[in-house]
Write a protein that binds this DNA or RNA. Structure first.
Lengths: 145, 145
DNA sequence: TTAATACCTAAAGCTAACTTTATGTCAAGA
DNA sequence: TCTTGACATAAAGTTAGCTTTAGGTATTAA
């Protein structure tokens, strides 16, 4: 059993954030001692790990809460929960694709400014047409557009 | 030259959002006609493409604005701009790594609920120890932890 | 000439996800 | 006994990034 301070260090989350998650209904099974102090068990830690993962993948608190609610309704919500994870999987895959497109653009810009820095100005590099670009840079340019 | 309505459709951004970007100083070189109507040229469109990319990669408006400011200061800010893109490149690479970790966790959960759905309950799948997991699933589990 | 449409501004409003503040309880050490 | 530190609550405040509202101008179509 862990106190809120210990969990705060464990997950690198401020104590008020943990209390906020609790208030929002993300930690349904969280117990208290006789004087009202929160006691986190391994189950709660697993839940927090999942919350961490879902948040990192961009899911909103209210949707995480909905999922947590389903969990507490037992076996009859298994399909719903599976569907949610399948959707979230697609979601993350799309995010990764989008980031990879952005990365191509940024890498092109890195090259661009590398050249400009060598020249001391942007004159030459600014007027290069896509066809004159080095092969690898051309690829970046195309991926970004 | 394009009107704000045309640009709105082109980028799939609401008109007020474009006006907001302008107000925030993200579209420094934006011209107006005699009656004050915004006229977007190809340069502005390039800027919007970059804004789109930087936003997609999680950069804040105020930082994009700072960068736009550097651009208007000419050659003496070339190194600064290069550094910004190098930092942003790392940033995106980290985001992708984080998303891949989250993806492993989510894929594990997909498998978990697939099994639970077959069984009609979570009993069996819940009590499987990491070592008993199928090889490919074990990998997901480990990547996620 | 009027009505619709597309533009304009300033300012207020909104939402998510915290974060801060003010106030209070409780247990342990000096 | 008193103070310190870790916990608690409710409620107000914060921030980013829009979005909506209210009111006005200018051009075109009937």
């Amino acid at each position: 059993m862990y106190t809120i301070g210990e969990i705060s260090k464990m997950f690198n989350l401020p104590i008020p954030t943990l209390r906020y998650y609790d208030k929002e209904g993300l930690l349904l099974e969280l117990e208290r001692d006789k004087s009202g102090i929160r006691k986190f068990n391994n189950q709660n830690i697993e839940t927090l790990r999942l919350i961490e993962c879902l948040k990192k993948s961009g899911m909103q608190i209210k949707d995480i809460k909905e999922f947590i609610g389903w969990c507490s309704l037992g076996d009859k919500t298994i399909s719903k929960r599976k569907e949610m994870f399948l959707k979230q999987k697609e979601n993350i895959e799309n995010q990764i694709k989008e980031l990879e497109k952005a990365l191509a653009m940024i890498e092109f810009k890195c090259w661009y400014y590398e050249e400009a820095e060598k020249d001391g100005n942007e004159k030459r590099v600014r007027t290069i047409t896509p066809n004159e670009l080095p092969k690898n840079i051309k690829k970046l340019y195309e991926n970004a557009h």
